[in-house]
Design a protein around this nucleic acid. Structure first.
Lengths: 346, 346
DNA sequence: GGCGGAGGTGAGAGCGCTCTCGGCGGCGCC
DNA sequence: GGCGCCGCCGAGAGCGCTCTCACCTCCGCC
C-alpha cells in the first residue's frame, strides 16, 4: 500500500533544470564536458527531486551491472561453522564497496544448485564472479567458464576443471605447512603426525605435500601411519586424533590441516590425558579468530591473511573488468605468504 | 578480447520459432494461453539458441528485481566472529533460492556507510530488505523507511526509530533469559550474576529484563552489583567476569548474554581457579555451534533457532512483496520460542 | 449456415537510460 | 575583420523486454 510515488526520472530532472536529458546524464556520470553553470543547475535539480538513477535502465544499455557474484560451493556443514568464509566475505565486501560494486551472494547446497548458479551467471546479472572452495571433481568451473563470466577463484583450482589460465588467489599452503613441520622438528619432535583436510581440495593437498616434503627431507622417510585423513571440521579432528592415538601412541606432535581440526584434536588429547605441548605439540592452520586464540591452551598456528585474500581477489577481478579482459602480462595466480604464529601449543 | 558473442535476444528466438516476440515472452513466463504446438516450437528455439532472458530489460518494465538486500549493520569486530550472522544468512539464502530470489549482501562498516545503504535501497535495485542488528539510536531504520522499500527486521527494533508497525522476527529473549535464571535458581544458586550485551540493542535489553524479572520474583530483590555490562564478545566477557569476581567473590552462577561472552567468562573463571559448574554455574545464550559445544566444559545455553529466524524473515518479506503490501491482518512481529540446552556448565 | 463470442496471436508502444552525431557558438589566427 | 576549428549541448535512436489492445480464427448455437 501507499505505493511510493514513482521515483523521478532523468526526464524530470532535465525539465526542472531546463536542459536536455543528455546533459543530466553527463552530469550524473561525472560531469565531463559540461560547463559550470549547467552543472550546478543540474546538481540542484537532482538534489531537490531526490533523483536516483534507475540501475536497470542503465544496465540495459551499458551492459554493466556494478555487481559481482560470490559463489561459495561448500557442503552446508562447513560453510558457516568455519569463520574462514566470513573473513573472506568481509575482505570482499570492503573492496567492493570501495569501488562502488554490489555483492550478490550465492550459496550452494549440494550439486543440484550448481546448475542454478551457472544459469544465474549466464543470465548476465553480474559483471564477474568470485568462486570459492572448489573440489577436484567439481563441475562448477566448467559451467562457469561456459557462462562466459570473468572469474577469480579463491584457492588454486585443481587441474581437473577449466583452463590452466584460470585466475586465482591462494595462500602459500605448501610453504606454510613446511614452516609448521620444520618448527616442530626444531622443537625436537620426531614422531610428527598430520591430520589432513579433504584431499580433493588443493589447499588440503598442498598442505599435505608440504608436510611430506619436510618429513622426507629431515626424517629421511615418513611413517605413513602418521598421516590420517579428515575433513576440516572439529568433529573430524576428534575422530582423526583418536585414530592417531590408537595407531601411534608414541606420537609427539600433530600438524593439523586447519584450526578447527586442531581444536578437535586438542580435546581428544586432553581426554586421553596427554599434556599439550609437553607430551604432544600441536600446530593448526589459518589462524581464524577467535577460535585459535581461545583454545585451551591457545593454539600455535600458521597464519594466512584471509581478509586480504578476499580483497585481492576482488581487486583482481575488478581490474580485469575495467580494462576489458585480463591484462596480457598479468599472472594467472597470486600466492600470499603465511607466517607462523606461536602461542602455547608448540 | 573474445568478447562472448552477444547473447541471443527474445527477437532472435521469435524469428527462429516463427512467432512474435509476445508469444515467446508468454512461453518463457509460464506459457499460459499459448497453444501446444507453438509452446513446443518456442521451447526448442530457446534451447537451441541457449537463450537466457536479460534481467535488466525485464526489470525495467516490471519493476521487479527478484532480489532482496540483506543489511548487516554491525561494528566490524562482531560481524564475523559471531557465527550468529552466518547462520541467519544460511536460513535466508535457503529460503531465497527456494523462491528464486537473489541475495544482495550489504555490510556496513560504521555510520558513514548508512547513507550509502540508504541510497542503494532507494535506488530500487532490490524488492525488499532484511535488516539486522539495529541499535536504539541507529538512524538506519528511518533512512530505510524513507527509501520506501519493504523491510523486515531481525530482532525487535527499538522504540526510537520507525513506526510501531515495523515488521520483525525475534526470539523470545526475555522468556529465554527467565528460563536460564530459573534453572540456576533450581540448582540452588543464590548469587546469580548477569553479564549483559550492549544495552542499546533490544535483544540484550530484553535478556537483562528477563533476568531482573526472575531475580525480583525469586530473590525479592537483586543485588545491582551482580549485573555487569559487556558487549557480546569473548574479550568483553573476560573483562566483565574479572570485574564480577572483584566485586562479588561469592558469585555462584553467571548468566551470560550470549555464548561468546560465556566463553570469555569461562576462561577467566578457570584462570581464577573456580571450578565450573561446582563453584560457579554458567549459562550462555544462542547455542551457536561449534562454540557452545566446544567450550571447556561444554556450555549450557539457551538455544534459539537462528537459521529458522532467517528463513522466517525471508518468507515474511516475500509474502508482502507478492501480495502487494503487507497483508492487513498480519502480525507486525513474530517471536520464536527458545529452549534450554543442558550441557556441563549448569 | 450465419452470427456472436471466446480464445490465441501479433503489432506496437513504451520502461529510463546512454551515446552518437549534428549544430551552434566562441575563440584564435592571418 | 573573416574563416576555421574546437568545445558544448540537444535531438533521437535504440538497449531487450512486457503488456495492452486489436485482430483473426474457430467453435457453438439458434
Amino acid at each position: 500500500m501507499s505505493e511510493a510515488v514513482s521515483r523521478p526520472t532523468l526526464e524530470a530532472v532535465a525539465a526542472r533544470a531546463g536542459v536536455s536529458r543528455a546533459t543530466v546524464s553527463r552530469v550524473v556520470n561525472g560531469g565531463d564536458g559540461v560547463r559550470e553553470p549547467l552543472v550546478e543547475r543540474v546538481r540542484r535539480a537532482v538534489e531537490e527531486l531526490g533523483y536516483v538513477p534507475n540501475q536497470a535502465a542503465r544496465s540495459l544499455v551499458t551492459r554493466r551491472h556494478d555487481a559481482v557474484a560470490v559463489v561459495i560451493a561448500e557442503p552446508e556443514t562447513r560453510i558457516f561453522t568455519d569463520p574462514f568464509f566470513a573473513l573472506q566475505l568481509r575482505g570482499i565486501s570492503k573492496e567492493l564497496t570501495a569501488q562502488d560494486n554490489q555483492l550478490v551472494l550465492l550459496l550452494t547446497e549440494g550439486r543440484d544448485d550448481h546448475a542454478r548458479v551457472a544459469r544465474y551467471l549466464a543470465g548476465g546479472h553480474v559483471d564477474g564472479a568470485l568462486v570459492f572452495s572448489l573440489h577436484l571433481d567439481d563441475p562448477l568451473p566448467g559451467l562457469i567458464e561456459g557462462a562466459g563470466v570473468p572469474t577469480v577463484f579463491g584457492g588454486r583450482p585443481g587441474w581437473g576443471g577449466g583452463s590452466n589460465t584460470a585466475r586465482y588467489v591462494d595462500c602459500d599452503n605448501r610453504g606454510g605447512a613446511e614452516d609448521a613441520v620444520r618448527h616442530l622438528v626444531g622443537l625436537g619432535r620426531t614422531r610428527i603426525a598430520h591430520i589432513t583436510g579433504p584431499l580433493d581440495q588443493t589447499s588440503a593437498a598442498d598442505r599435505l605435500q608440504g608436510y611430506l616434503d619436510v618429513m622426507g627431507e629431515v626424517m629421511g622417510e615418513s611413517d605413513p601411519r602418521l598421516v590420517v585423513a579428515s575433513d576440516f571440521t572439529p568433529s573430524g579432528g576428534e575422530r582423526a586424533m583418536g585414530e592417531l592415538l590408537d595407531r601411534c601412541p608414541d606420537v609427539d606432535a600433530v600438524f593439523a590441516a586447519n584450526d578447527l581440526t586442531a581444536l578437535g584434536a586438542l580435546r581428544v588429547l586432553r581426554e586421553h590425558g596427554r599434556r599439550v605441548p609437553e607430551d604432544v605439540a600441536v600446530i593448526g592452520f589459518d589462524d581464524v579468530l577467535p577460535v585459535a586464540e581461545q583454545t585451551e591452551p591457545p593454539l600455535t598456528t600458521v597464519r594466512q591473511d584471509i581478509e586480504e585474500m578476499g580483497r585481492l581477489m576482488t581487486r583482481l577481478l575488478l581490474s580485469t573488468l575495467t580494462r576489458g579482459g585480463p591484462a596480457a602480462g598479468a599472472p594467472a595466480g597470486v600466492v600470499l605468504p603465511t607466517t607462523l604464529v606461536r602461542r602455547a601449543t608448540a
